[in-house]
Nucleic acid binder design. Structure first.
Length: 305
DNA sequence: AAATTGTACAACCGCCACACC
DNA sequence: GGGTGTGGCGGTTGTACAATT
């Protein structure tokens, strides 16, 4: 028998989150930290199911999420990682700090998939072209990639295991008593926020917005920067019941604060301890190295691990 | 200017893995 | 070892907005 849904359908609100709901959720997480999602709706009074709360936090409210404007480098990484890992968006997201799996998934479905269909052979070097342009070598290429992926995953698991102690030093200051469990939370908490679009009228929201709504948010994060945008007077905000209010429009148009270098430095992986592939992925300057990896023979690739 | 079509993305749904009892 | 609850993940949908006719 199938399990009942995580929350009964009656009385559970659906659809876009309002600023008020976001504030409520963020305020609660500020005090209690993320986790124990099942208690969040009852403790906050939100008419949302626990899953919805977790998703909202994970994908949009938590610090360190960058939205929109994927760079070429990020695009290349996504394409390569998708080829390596398949549609394992959470795993791919773990190599793209500041991006959520949902964001990457959406970007793939709306942009990259189409691009690859339009330009299947010259997308990203030999690895793609070799598999798509030659049917006879295609099967072998797939087999090799599969094997390589297995090796890669084993390596990743090892790296993750070895870096467990390092994760405990990440900037989870606002919830030090709770260790993030989601893979994406293993990534740096970079308060670099970007609105969905500078001219959007959506309440696309960003944690920066929430940060502005909540003066204590910055206060509680000892390493957060004090930028000019922080001086925005929250009393000027006039939230309306609908997300597309003018107040929020102004929000999204306001200056985007800079990244906290401290947080970034702190949470960036220790490059010394990373393997060849990880270095390729994290360091934009060695993207060619990644291509080299993809073009290596299986034996050569294995030797790296 | 209005209607239609296309695009982007936030959010939901259902399944699965894991932890706990 | 089996049952149950929770969190996580990937696929998919709904909807707002933009572009085109």
């Amino acid at each position: 028998m199938g399990r009942p849904p995580c929350c009964d359908k009656i009385g559970v609100k659906k659809g876009p989150w309002t600023p008020e709901e976001d504030i409520t959720l963020v305020t609660y997480i500020q005090e209690h930290g993320p986790g124990n999602w099942r208690f969040v709706p009852t403790n906050t009074g939100l008419s949302r199911c626990s899953k919805s709360c977790r998703l909202r936090w994970t994908n949009y409210l938590r610090p360190g999420i960058k939205r929109g404007n994927f760079t070429d480098q990020e695009e290349r990484k996504i394409v390569h990682l998708q080829e390596l890992l398949g549609n394992r968006w959470a795993a791919i997201a773990s190599y793209l700090p500041q991006r959520t799996d949902n964001d990457i998934k959406n970007y793939w479905n709306t942009h990259l998939k189409k691009k690859l269909i339009d330009f299947p052979t010259n997308q990203d070097g030999a690895s793609t072209s070799s598999s798509s342009s030659d049917a006879t070598t295609g099967a072998k290429g797939q087999w090799e990639r599969k094997l390589r992926t297995n090796v890669f995953m084993a390596k990743q698991a090892l790296t993750d295991a070895l870096s467990l102690d390092k994760k405990s030093t990440t900037s989870w200051q606002h919830a030090p008593h709770i260790t993030p469990t989601a893979p994406i939370n293993h990534q740096p908490e970079l308060p670099l926020m970007q609105p969905r679009s500078l001219n959007t009228t959506n309440y696309a929201l960003s944690a920066e917005n929430i940060a502005r709504m909540l003066p204590n948010w910055e206060k509680n994060s000892s390493k957060s920067p004090q930028t000019s945008s922080d001086s925005i007077n929250t009393s000027n905000l006039q939230f309306q019941s609908h997300p597309t209010s003018e107040g929020l429009k102004n929000y999204n148009n306001s200056e985007v604060s800079e990244t906290t270098s401290l947080l970034q430095d702190e949470s960036k992986p220790d490059m010394e301890s990373l393997g060849f592939l990880e270095k390729c992925l994290f360091d934009d300057t060695v993207a060619e190295g990644y291509d080299r990896f993809m073009n290596m023979s299986l034996e050569e690739a294995d030797a790296l691990f």
